[in-house]
């Protein structure tokens, strides 16, 4: 039993469920929702790198999500680009803009930074809303194509699209894992814990915060581009600050600065809101207070609470073992 309940087996189990999902539930609606979960999760992992691990709150994240969505939408609909080329362009554009915005905004820190990014996010939203000739204004962009085929593989069916998104999500989690367990991730965490201390031990906080910001922007734009091609219609509301707040809620409830938190939070809340359809409009009446409770009582979110519990359990077990060992040694000596 003990050998079976390892972390690796748990991850494998979740992976198998995710892979078999189209066969377990032949319901298109469920699959559609799970595909959306994959997209939101990728974006939430982006927030997690910058907010969870580096400790700064950026409210421009949703703006970059919108930039990704609109870059892909405009390039595929108006310029007839290939999907993959447009996806790449969305990523590159988000990196360039991320560096530009980051260079300016990261000169400020703390609350100033958050308010600054809020303004940047709102400017992006307003520009999308008002620039009729390029973005279509409030009418939005219609008819964004599915991902184009790679050799024999097409992505026209929902199932294949779901697998594509799942692949990207797994890739995102893998990259996050690699970043967090590398020296770079430890640098980010050092900056989160204390910027002054990080500076004293010779970390260039400015460079690393910028890097973290750009990675986060890239994930946001990538998720936005995938969202555009999955939903096939986008309007200015993909850049609205309330959507950004929603993603923050996924992250905080799931667990800030944890590896599994973003996925846990997103799945939990998206499935909850989907199964309680009548709540759609008033969901914040419930999730607002839940967010408050989590922030006050479990600042590390669900994933953090689970980690704490398992650590406690492990500590208790090792303690019990030690007591047993001592008793046996006493017996042997006696």
């Amino acid at each position: 039993m003990k050998g079976f309940l390892t972390k690796r087996n748990g991850i494998l189990l979740v992976l198998i469920i995710a892979l078999l999902l189209p066969f377990i539930v032949p319901n298109e609606y469920v699959l559609h929702v799970m595909a959306l979960v994959c997209i939101w999760s990728i974006s939430v992992y982006g927030i997690n790198i910058f907010t969870g691990f580096t400790g700064n709150l950026s409210l421009a994240h949703i703006g970059f999500f919108a930039i990704g969505a609109y870059t892909l939408g405009i390039l595929t609909v108006k310029a007839d680009w290939n999907f993959w080329l447009a996806l790449l362009a969305a990523g590159v554009l988000s990196i360039v803009l991320g560096i530009l915005v980051g260079l300016i905004s990261l000169r400020t820190s703390g609350h100033f930074f958050t308010i600054f990014t809020m303004c940047v996010g709102y400017i992006i939203y307003l520009v999308i809303d008002k620039w009729d000739t390029l973005t279509g204004g409030v009418r939005g962009l219609i008819g964004i194509p599915n991902p184009s085929r790679i050799g024999p593989i097409t992505f026209d069916s929902l199932t294949s699209h779901y697998y594509l998104l799942l692949c990207f999500l797994i890739l995102t989690i893998f990259i996050t894992k690699r970043i967090v367990s590398s020296l770079l991730g430890r640098t980010f965490i050092a900056i989160r814990n204390s910027e002054e201390l990080a500076q004293t031990i010779g970390i260039s906080t400015k460079k690393n915060r910028l890097l973290s910001f750009v990675i986060s922007c890239f994930f946001a734009a990538f998720a936005g581009a995938l969202y555009a091609s999955f939903v096939r219609f986008i309007g200015p509301e993909v850049g609205a600050i309330f959507l950004g707040f929603e993603m923050l809620i996924y992250l905080v409830i799931g667990g800030l600065g944890t590896l599994t938190g973003p996925v846990i939070g997103t799945i939990l809340i998206v499935t909850l809101t989907q199964s309680l359809q009548f709540l759609q409009e008033y969901k914040m009446l419930i999730f607002g207070p839940i967010l408050l409770l989590i922030v006050i009582f479990y600042p590390q979110g669900i994933a953090g609470a689970i980690n704490k519990l398992t650590n406690k359990w492990k500590a208790k077990r090792t303690k019990d073992n030690k007591v047993k060992e001592q008793q046996t040694t006493i017996k042997e000596v006696g």
Partner: peptide, 10 residues
């Protein structure tokens, strides 16, 4: 800040 956002959304 999260707390403030929670109140706002509610």
């Amino acid at each position: 800040m999260m707390g403030a956002i929670g109140i706002l959304l509610f």
